Simulated scan of single mutants.
Amino acid sequence: MSDDYSAGSETNPFQNAKVLIVEDNPDACALIAGILWLKGVECIKAQSVEESIDNAAEAERIDVAVLNGRLAQEKGGFLVARLKELKPKILLFVITNDDSDRARVMQLGCDEFSKKPISTESIADKVLALIAKGAATPSVGSVK
């Protein structure tokens, strides 16, 4: 998905999407937010579990959360459970240092997993795919 859309473009299929980025490294957080912004996605940044929960509670909607693997698994997966509780339709993408974390984070309720190192373009592609997946999933009780 190498198409670049300017933020707010009328032809951008992702212009109403909101992504929560939970990353304790401010540079990595800014890089991810920047590439998603170029795709037209609105990003909410958080650098801790507490900040991410506060941001999720305040946001009207969040389509996807990109989670640092260590933060996602902290306190037995508290962040994952709390985000799912606050935003039941949220899709979660976890990026970790270790491939052995895959089974654990998927069991916690995550929808996508990648091992570091991963390029920001690959992160953006996976996030955009999750946004599209979420948009294609009918709401409970809706008729298509």
Results as ranks from 00 to 15, higher is better:
130 L>V: 07
91 L>G: 00
126 K>W: 00
46 A>V: 03
61 R>G: 02
125 D>Q: 14
141 G>Q: 11
48 S>G: 11
75 K>M: 03
87 K>T: 10
136 A>P: 10
18 K>E: 10
8 G>S: 04
133 K>V: 03
51 E>T: 09
47 Q>P: 01
55 N>G: 05
137 T>D: 02
34 G>Y: 06
20 L>D: 06
134 G>D: 04
94 V>H: 01
109 G>C: 06
109 G>P: 06
125 D>M: 09
6 S>C: 01
60 E>G: 12
78 F>E: 14
108 L>F: 13
76 G>W: 09
69 G>Q: 02
39 K>A: 15
75 K>R: 13
54 D>V: 11
111 D>A: 12
44 I>K: 04
22 V>L: 12
74 E>R: 14
29 C>K: 07
109 G>S: 03
135 A>C: 01
105 V>L: 09
124 A>I: 09
126 K>S: 12
8 G>I: 10
55 N>H: 13
45 K>L: 12
62 I>P: 00
1 M>T: 14
19 V>T: 06
120 T>E: 05
5 Y>D: 02
65 A>I: 03
79 L>A: 10
49 V>C: 13
140 V>N: 14
37 W>I: 00
80 V>F: 07
73 Q>V: 06
7 A>P: 01
101 D>I: 05
40 G>R: 09
42 E>K: 12
96 T>L: 04
24 D>F: 08
70 R>A: 09
52 S>G: 14
122 S>F: 03
48 S>T: 15
107 Q>L: 10
20 L>N: 08
75 K>S: 11
14 F>I: 01
108 L>M: 15
83 L>E: 05
108 L>T: 03
90 I>T: 05
120 T>I: 02
109 G>H: 04
85 E>F: 13
5 Y>N: 02
86 L>Y: 08
111 D>N: 15
21 I>S: 04
109 G>E: 02
1 M>P: 05
98 D>Y: 15
49 V>M: 11
140 V>S: 12
29 C>H: 00
45 K>S: 14
72 A>K: 03
83 L>A: 10
64 V>G: 03
23 E>Y: 04
101 D>T: 07
136 A>E: 11
126 K>Q: 08
20 L>S: 07
97 N>H: 10
96 T>K: 00
21 I>F: 04
33 A>L: 11
131 I>R: 02
132 A>G: 07
122 S>D: 15
77 G>M: 13
116 K>P: 00
136 A>Q: 13
58 E>N: 14
29 C>W: 00
30 A>Q: 15
32 I>N: 02
97 N>M: 12
5 Y>P: 01
73 Q>E: 13
53 I>W: 06
25 N>G: 09
139 S>H: 10
61 R>P: 02
19 V>P: 05
50 E>S: 15
35 I>E: 01
118 I>A: 07
40 G>C: 08
62 I>S: 09
144 K>Y: 13
137 T>N: 07
26 P>Q: 05
34 G>V: 07
16 N>H: 11
40 G>L: 06
32 I>H: 01
4 D>K: 09
38 L>H: 06
73 Q>G: 09
71 L>G: 04
78 F>K: 13
48 S>A: 13
22 V>Q: 03
116 K>L: 14
3 D>K: 14
43 C>W: 08
131 I>K: 03
110 C>M: 02
51 E>L: 07
44 I>F: 01
56 A>Q: 08
36 L>Y: 00
19 V>L: 06
39 K>N: 14
127 V>S: 02
130 L>Y: 02
114 S>D: 08
124 A>L: 10
